[in-house]
Simulated assay, not measured.
Amino acid sequence: MLQQIYPSVQHDYCYELNKDFHFAAAHYIPSDDAGKCRLTHGHTYFANVTVAGGELDDSGFLVNFAIIKQLIHNRFDHTLLNEDTDSFDNGISHRFPTTEVVARVIHDLVQTHLDSLPNRPQCLQVFLRETPTSYCIYRPKRKGKGND
């Protein structure tokens, strides 16, 4: 993967890590407004996940890089995203496997794992590139900032 510079997230944590990875997957968007994207087609998605926290674990990690990749790559690589009905739903527009929704799902999967760790790091951002010219950034609302 080529080195990229991603938009940064302002935070007060001591540690920040970013994990780049890619996965190949097909999808279709079940909406008349999606044009050609209504048809099944594939992408090589490039993702960057930003995790931050104030404490390291017993191994000296904020979180193990390999686990972040495994959470997503093992689930989505070489799949038809629409068939993952735990993550996506062809009947509910905010759960169609659009780039925006895939980025949010990646965040949620990573954050669920992070919530199980004693040092409680936070997934601050998911950058997801679908094509060489199109990408999405998902940042969850921050708790305690009037967004609860």
Rank of each mutant, 00 (worst) to 15 (best):
L71C: 07
L71M: 07
L71S: 07
L71K: 04
L71A: 04
I72A: 01
I72T: 02
I72L: 13
I72C: 04
H73P: 00
H73S: 05
H73V: 12
H73F: 12
N74D: 15
N74I: 01
N74T: 10
N74A: 11
N74P: 00
R75V: 06
R75H: 15
R75L: 14
F76V: 03
F76A: 04
F76N: 03
F76L: 11
D77K: 04
D77N: 14
D77L: 03
D77I: 02
D77C: 04
D77A: 06
D77G: 04
D77T: 03
D77M: 01
H78D: 06
H78E: 04
H78N: 14
H78C: 06
T79P: 02
L80V: 09
L80R: 09
L80G: 07
L80C: 07
L80D: 04
L81K: 01
L81Q: 04
L81S: 03
L81P: 06
L81N: 03
L81W: 01
N82Q: 08
N82Y: 05
N82R: 07
E83G: 02
E83C: 04
E83Y: 08
D84P: 02
D84M: 06
D84C: 08
T85I: 12
D86V: 08
D86G: 02
D86R: 14
D86Q: 13
S87M: 11
S87I: 02
S87G: 07
F88Y: 11
F88W: 02
F88C: 03
F88H: 00
F88N: 01
F88E: 01
D89I: 05
D89L: 10
D89T: 05
D89N: 15
D89F: 08
N90A: 10
N90G: 13
N90C: 10
N90M: 03
N90T: 09
N90V: 03
N90E: 12
G91D: 15
I92W: 13
I92L: 15
I92D: 15
I92N: 15
I92M: 14
S93V: 13
S93Y: 13
S93K: 15
S93A: 13
S93I: 12
H94M: 05
H94N: 14
H94Q: 12
R95L: 15
R95M: 14
R95N: 13
F96G: 00
F96P: 01
F96L: 00
F96Q: 01
F96I: 00
F96C: 01
F96M: 02
P97V: 05
P97A: 11
T98L: 09
T98R: 08
T98W: 03
T98Y: 04
T98F: 09
T98M: 10
T98K: 05
T98C: 06
T99K: 04
T99N: 14
T99L: 09
T99C: 14
T99I: 09
E100K: 13
E100R: 13
E100T: 09
E100D: 14
E100V: 04
V101Y: 03
V101E: 04
V101Q: 09
V101D: 01
V101C: 11
V102D: 02
V102M: 11
V102N: 03
V102W: 03
V102F: 10
A103F: 00
R104I: 00
R104S: 08
R104G: 08
